[in-house]
């Protein structure tokens, strides 16, 4: 039977295709909302850290400021990572092969972690700006840098979490897997951020930005090549 309004049909198909992903995502966010106090804890940690930095160094130099920023980011991304690991540990086992395709689960995880990391990034920025303001930087460019980093990191966290879930292992893998894999991304971001803070223009650092974006692309492409292979068994 031919549907006269092919457009609607197509929309329906996309909708059906997207449905599990959307459902998963909404589940993630509802879960997050329910555990809202965790975000509060995160904020308290950040405030405490900033106060400590202020207490001990007063006003840190640009390089130190940058280092503290990304170290805090790394720490918090590990915090997020450990939560994702715990959730995935059970979820991949329960849901896979029954309700949704693992790729959907992975994708929803990536989006969710990306969102969390971005929130964390904004929070760190706000807290740092509040307590130890020493920075005037082109915000748009900084934002783009953060987005690129968050993208790579979220894929890495979700990917290693999937590996961990399939390996039926503990959270020891978190540091072992994520740290070396994320090190080049973080290192490049740190260097680019440094030169941004020193007042250089973004496009002076074009080659490195391109490298970060390229690494992101590589990571995303490989994750989507490799995951079906893992999931197949």
């Amino acid at each position: 039977m031919i549907n006269p309004s092919g457009l609607i049909m197509q929309q329906q198909i996309t909708f059906v295709f997207m449905l599990p992903l959307l459902a998963l995502l909404s589940k993630e966010f509802r879960n997050e909302w329910r555990n809202f106090y965790q975000l509060g804890g995160l904020l308290a940690f950040l405030a405490g850290e900033c106060y400590l930095i202020y207490f001990f160094t007063g006003k840190p130099e640009l390089r130190q400021w940058n280092l503290l920023y990304w170290l805090t980011y790394l720490f918090l991304s590990f915090f997020i990572g450990s939560r994702v690991y715990d959730e995935d540990q059970t979820r991949y086992r329960v849901i896979v092969h029954q309700l949704v395709h693992p790729i959907d689960l992975f994708l929803s995880k990536v989006i969710y972690v990306f969102f969390l990391l971005s929130t964390v990034n904004v929070l760190i920025w706000l807290m740092f700006a509040l307590f130890i303001p020493s920075v005037h930087v082109a915000l748009g460019q900084w934002l783009m840098l953060c987005v690129l980093l968050n993208l790579g990191m979220s894929v890495l966290i979700a990917f290693s979490s999937l590996l961990n879930a399939y390996a039926k292992n503990n959270t020891l893998f978190l540091t072992v897997l994520i740290l070396p894999l994320s090190f080049p991304l973080l290192g490049m971001t740190f260097q680019t951020a440094n030169s941004l803070l020193e007042g250089q223009q973004f496009f002076g650092e074009l080659s490195k930005i391109r490298l970060i974006a390229g690494t992101d692309l590589m990571i995303v492409a490989l994750a989507f090549f490799v995951i079906p292979q893992i999931v197949r068994s």
């Binding site: 990917f159 590996l163 897997l177 080049p184 590589m218 990571i219 490989l222 994750a223």
Partner: peptide, 11 residues
């Protein structure tokens, strides 16, 4: 195997 492919080509 998945990790090996991923690590070498991405990093």
């Amino acid at each position: 195997a998945a990790f090996n492919v991923f690590a070498l080509i991405a990093i």
